[in-house]
Amino acid sequence: MDGEKMDKTPMYQYVINDIKRKIEAGELKPHDPLPSQIDLAKAYGTSEITSRRALSDLVQEGYVYRIRGKGSFIQENPAFAEAKPIRSIYLAHLNHTIEGFNHPFFSNMFDGINTVCEENGIDFHLWDIGPDNVLPNDPHAGIILLTSTANDSFDPSRLTVWQQENRRMVTVHFYYPHLGIPYVIVDNLTGGYLATQHLLSLGHRRIGIIITGNSILEVNQEFSLRLQGYRLALSQHQIPFDPDLIACVSGFDERAEMGEEGFRRLMALDEPPTAIFATSDYKAFGAIDEARKRGMKVPEEISIMGYDDVKVSAYSYPTLSTVNQNTHKLGERAAEILLFEMKEGGGQLLKDEIVPTLIQRGSTGPAPRRQADPS
């Protein structure tokens, strides 16, 4: 460190001011690398948390840019930086329950957001926008918006209002690309494709799907995309799409009973499937229970595929083949876009799609010999 800190300025602000001084004096030039968080902390005799916050604020103020895996560098035109740094990030939602947030989709996403926040000295909180759709009274907060579920009453016109207020927002899970709002989503189409392709690779050619919705025309955004992935995988194997193999079951909260109902419908067909893709683990557990009641062996007589990778799926019997949505990464990316990539008034559409991962376990196996693909 070049000089001693003589006043009561917070240490993170002292680091910021000193780096700005070096930029203005020409000691640091555009695209020069900065020390790592650890080395910066050593240089200023402070903690790594302090150096993280200093670097984060310099990024948000436009003095520094980051390249993943390479480090932090001085911006080309830092003199024009005017953005005020984000001090807090809120996951804003409408009417989600604490019980629902225990689902790994949400809990892993929260952990991902919090990981980035802790690394950069940022507070992270949940915020229910309530029936009046009200955001925190902090115009400089970063907002990760979880806007829509099957039972909420979110008013999309509020998005335009918040844009006019220059709120720094990114949406997750659902998205509104026509408004130019940055978003991060899980690639549900790829997830549905991976689940179906896995069953196809095992020789199954008659594959049923249990999906949440009152009808095939009343399926929400995420399940609709999983259905598209299912159809895409079938088409690539020249297997005709059969609407009879779609079991739509009504419900809001995913429940095992929905899987039981869907299984019964599919097994009642004149030519029942040899494998079932249940579009949530809870429905898959219900399908397995119903198969057991009928004396059917899983996976020897019927393969059952889930989606979500809830914790118990690794310990059930049989263990459940499923799709992990990688929502920890979704949370990380949402926070990173807010903190490091979004510029006030920039008008650019930032987006990211997180690719899910297939988890192969014991509930899926080769198609029964008499029904397997003769090829």
Rank of each mutant, 00 (worst) to 15 (best):
D2M: 09
A287M: 04
E344T: 10
D187V: 10
Q236S: 02
P366M: 03
S36K: 15
D155A: 09
Y90L: 03
L91H: 07
D373I: 05
Q13F: 08
L232F: 09
G295F: 02
G192P: 08
E260M: 14
F285V: 01
N220Y: 03
G26S: 02
D57F: 14
T319E: 04
L199T: 02
L330I: 06
E344Q: 14
T322V: 02
H31P: 04
N214W: 07
I354C: 05
P272A: 06
R370V: 08
A372I: 13
R370G: 07
I181F: 12
K343D: 13
Y317M: 08
D155H: 11
P104Q: 01
I337E: 10
A367N: 06
D155I: 10
G192H: 09
S215V: 06
I89P: 12
P10G: 03
E82H: 07
G347L: 06
I113E: 03
G362K: 02
M109K: 03
H204F: 02
S250L: 08
L146F: 12
K297E: 02
K351G: 00
G229R: 11
E99Q: 05
D309K: 14
P374F: 01
Y44N: 08
R361A: 06
L199D: 04
S47N: 06
R226E: 11
N151M: 11
A150I: 10
A372R: 15
P368G: 11
E99H: 07
I16V: 01
D57H: 14
V170N: 09
R21V: 02
K351Y: 11
T9V: 13
I122G: 01
E99W: 00
G259I: 00
I209H: 11
T327P: 02
R168W: 04
I122S: 07
P139M: 07
N102T: 14
S375P: 00
L350H: 01
S72G: 04
M296L: 15
S280Q: 09
L358F: 06
A314H: 10
D32N: 05
D138R: 06
H237R: 12
N114M: 15
G306F: 07
V170K: 07
E48A: 07
V134L: 04
K70M: 12
M296T: 08
G213E: 11
M109G: 01
G208W: 00
L349A: 09
P177N: 03
R87G: 15
G347R: 12
I19D: 02
S201W: 08
